[in-house]
Design a protein around this nucleic acid. Structure first.
Length: 542
RNA sequence: GCGCCUGUAGCUCAACCGGACAGAGCAUCGGCCUUCUAAGCCGAGGGUUCCGAGUUCAAGUCUCGGCAGGCGUACCA
C-alpha cells in the first residue's frame, strides 16, 4: 500500500472518465503543510493543450474524483489550479500500522520490475591509493545500488580493475627502481613512473617475495604482482569504509579470453574501423564524438579504449538492461566516445549512462590541502576514513548532488560539537533508542490509541513518514541519494520538535504512551532504513 | 581555441527533470537543560538566484549570447 500510488491511480481514473489526454501524473509536496499533503499540477499542464482555464479543469477533475475514498480526507483547488489533497486520519493510521508490520521493508517498491542494472564505480587504477573523488564515488555508487535494490531493480555493483597495459609495466619498473635503490644501486624511477611512498613499501615487500633476484623478474610480472597488492589494499580500505562490491572485474580476464580482439572484429565487420597512418581508427565521430578515436596504435598495441568497449559489451552480455558508470571529472572527456561506441554497436541510447562525480576540494580549517599527484602526496580514501570516520564522510558526500563541485573541510567534518550537522539524523535515532531503553516492556498500540495522536507535531511526523516511500522512489529513479539524505534530515527535525513538545512516556496515560511509542518506533524504523540506504549506521547510543 | 561541469544568503549547499511567498546548516544576535540524550529546541536579521536577451499562463530550472572558476582536450590509463 503506497498512498501516493493510490492517489495517482484515482487521479488517472478521474482523468480517463473525463476523456482527458494521458499525461504523466506527478505528485508534489505543497510548500506549506496547511495547503495539503500532496498536490498535483496536472490541471495547469493540461490548460494549454485543451485551451481552457486551469481552474476550470481542476474543478472538473475534482468532480470526477471519487468522494468516498476512505484514505483521502478532502481535496482543494488552490492558486492557479493546483489540486491539493489531504489524507484522512485513516490514511495516517494505515501508514503507521504499515511501518510497524513491514519494518525495514517499508518504502520498498517494485517500480524497477526486476530490471538488471549494473553500477560500476571507483575503478581506480591499481597503481596507487584511492583519492577523495573515489571516496565520493564509492559513497554515491554504493547508495545507488542500495536504492536500486530497494525499488525493485536487480542492481549490482562492480569495480573494474585496469590490471593490464602499459601502466602496469610502468608500475613494475618503478618498483624495480626502488628495489635497486634499497639495495644500494643507482636507479631512477622512469619518466611517467610512480613516485609515491607506497612504491617503496611495495619494493620492500617484493624483496621478501622474490628473495633471489627481484629485479630479474620482468617489469610486467613485477607490475602484476604489485598491482595485486595494491588491489588488496584498496579492498580493505573500501571495507573499512563500508562499501562492498558484488564483483571485482579484472581487465586481464578480458585479454585472456581475447575479448578486445573479438570486439575489434565486430567493429570491423560493422564497418566502423579504418586504417590511417598504420593505426586503426574507430569512426566514433559518426555517433556524436568530436573526432575518431584510435583503437590500435601504429605499433600494434590496443589503446585502453578497446578493452573498455569489450568490457561494456560483456556487461550487456551478462544481461544488464542498463549500465551506469560513475567516473571522475578527469574522465569527462571520454564520455562522448564511449556513448558513441555503444550507439555504434546498436545499443539503445539509454543503455549506458555516465555520471560524472565532480571534484572534491579538500580543506583543513578553510585552507586548501596541498596535494601532488606526481610525487604521490595525496590524501587517500583510507586516511580520510581513518581521520573523519566513514559515516561522517559519507554524510558529507551524500548531502550534495554528485555533480556539484564540493568543498570538504576535514576539520569541520571531524567536529563533534553541536555545530556539526553531520550526526543530526543519527542523533534522532539514538534518542528514540534511549526512550525505548527507558520504556520497559513495549506495549503494542491498540485501535483506540490512535485517537490520542492529535498534536501538530504528531501529525507532522505522520505526514513525513508517509512520504518516505515517495522519497526512496524519487531518489532511486533520479539517482539522487542526496534527496533521501535531505528527507532524513527533515524527518529528524520533525522528530526533534516532537520530542521537545510531546513527552512520550506518561505514567498516567497508557493509551497516549502506547500511541507515541508506536510513532517513535515507526520513526526509528524509517530512520534506520533510510540510513542503511545511504550506507550509514544507525547507532543506539551516541 | 574547442568540449564538459559549476555559478543561489557572509560561508557550505538544497530547491522533487517548468509550478505556489527561493529553503537548510554554519556564521551573527537573542531565548530554553531539577522532566524520556542540549550532538537538541524556539526566535531575529540576511537574496537583483553571475549579467543580458528570449520561450512560457508560469523560469533558479529550458534556449541563445556574454562574464567568472574548475576539469578535460594523446597512437596514456
Amino acid at each position: 500500500m503506497n498512498l501516493s500510488h493510490h492517489l495517482i491511480d484515482q487521479l488517472r481514473r478521474a482523468m480517463a472518465k473525463l476523456q482527458f489526454p494521458e499525461v504523466p501524473l506527478v505528485l508534489e509536496q505543497p510548500p506549506d503543510p496547511q495547503m495539503g499533503d500532496r498536490s498535483c499540477t496536472v490541471a495547469l499542464a493540461l490548460a494549454k493543450a485543451l485551451k481552457r482555464p486551469p481552474r476550470q479543469l481542476a474543478n472538473e477533475i475534482l468532480s470526477a474524483f471519487p468522494k468516498d475514498d476512505p484514505l483521502i480526507g478532502r481535496v482543494e483547488i488552490a492558486g492557479a489550479g493546483y489540486l491539493n489533497f489531504f489524507w484522512s486520519l485513516d490514511a495516517y493510521r494505515v501508514t503507521l500500522q504499515q511501518i510497524l508490520t513491514e519494518g525495514e521493508g517499508f518504502g520498498s517498491s517494485e517500480i524497477g520490475a526486476g530490471e538488471k542494472r549494473l553500477f560500476e564505480f571507483v575503478s581506480a587504477n591499481p597503481t596507487g591509493p584511492m583519492n577523495v573523488v573515489s571516496a565520493r564515488a564509492a559513497a554515491v555508487g554504493d547508495s545507488l545500488v542500495r536504492l536500486g535494490k530497494k525499488t525493485g531493480f536487480e542492481a549490482n555493483s562492480e569495480y573494474y580493475v585496469n590490471d593490464a597495459g602499459k601502466q602496469i609495466e610502468m608500475l613494475g619498473l618503478s618498483v624495480q627502481a626502488r628495489i635497486k635503490q634499497i639495495q644500494g644501486l643507482a636507479a631512477e624511477i622512469p619518466e611517467g613512473g610512480y613516485h609515491g611512498g607506497y612504491v617503496k613499501d611495495l619494493a620492500a615487500q617484493a624483496i621478501a617475495k622474490y628473495p633471489g633476484d627481484p629485479v630479474g623478474a620482468s617489469a610486467r610480472e613485477m607490475g602484476r604482482w604489485t598491482a595485486q597488492r595494491i588491489v588488496e589494499k584498496q579492498k580493505s580500505a573500501l571495507d573499512a569504509y563500508g562499501v562492498h562490491f558484488d564483483r571485482w572485474f579484472y581487465e586481464s580476464e578480458l585479454h585472456e579470453s581475447n575479448r578486445p580482439e573479438e570486439t575489434l572484429e565486430k567493429l570491423k565487420q560493422a564497418g566502423h574501423i579504418y586504417e590511417k597512418e598504420s593505426a586503426l581508427f574507430f569512426r566514433t565521430s559518426q555517433f556524436g564524438d568530436d573526432e575518431d578515436r584510435v583503437v590500435i596504435t601504429s605499433d600494434g598495441r590496443p589503446t585502453y579504449f578497446l578493452p573498455d568497449i569489450a568490457y561494456h559489451l560483456d556487461k550487456a552480455e551478462r544481461g544488464y538492461a542498463k549500465v551506469i558508470d560513475l567516473w571522475g571529472p578527469d574522465h569527462h572527456g571520454h564520455v562522448q566516445r564511449m556513448l558513441a561506441a555503444m550507439q555504434a554497436l546498436g545499443f539503445p541510447d539509454d543503455f549506458l549512462e555516465v555520471l560524472i562525480v565532480q571534484q572534491v576540494n579538500l580543506l583543513r580549517s578553510g585552507q586548501p590541502v596541498k596535494m601532488s599527484k606526481r610525487t604521490g602526496e595525496i590524501v587517500t580514501l583510507e586516511e580520510l576514513v581513518e581521520e573523519v570516520g566513514s559515516d561522517a564522510t559519507k554524510q558529507i558526500f551524500l548531502s550534495r548532488r554528485w555533480s556539484s563541485h564540493l568543498d570538504f573541510d576535514i576539520e569541520a567534518a571531524k567536529d563533534r560539537s553541536e555545530k556539526s550537522p553531520v550526526f543530526y539524523v543519527q542523533y534522532a535515532h539514538a534518542r528514540i533508542s534511549s526512550i525505548f531503553r527507558k520504556a520497559g516492556a513495549y506495549q503494542v498500540i491498540q485501535d483506540g490509541d490512535y485517537k490520542k495522536l492529535g498534536a501538530v507535531e504528531e501529525r507532522d511526523l505522520l505526514r513525513a513518514l508517509s512520504l518516505f516511500p515517495d522519497e526512496v522512489e524519487a531518489s532511486a529513479l533520479q539517482m539522487a541519494p542526496h534527496r533521501l539524505n535531505a528527507y532524513l534530515s527533515e524527518l529528524a527535525t520533525i522528530f526533534h520538535k516532537f520530542y521537545h513538545e510531546c513527552r512520550v512516556l506518561n505514567e498516567d496515560d497508557a493509551p497516549l504512551t502506547r500511541a507515541r511509542l508506536a510513532l517513535c518506533r515507526a520513526v526509528q524504523i524509517t530512520l534506520k532504513e533510510g540510513l542503511r540506504l545511504l550506507g550509514m549506521s544507525a547507532p543506539e547510543q551516541m
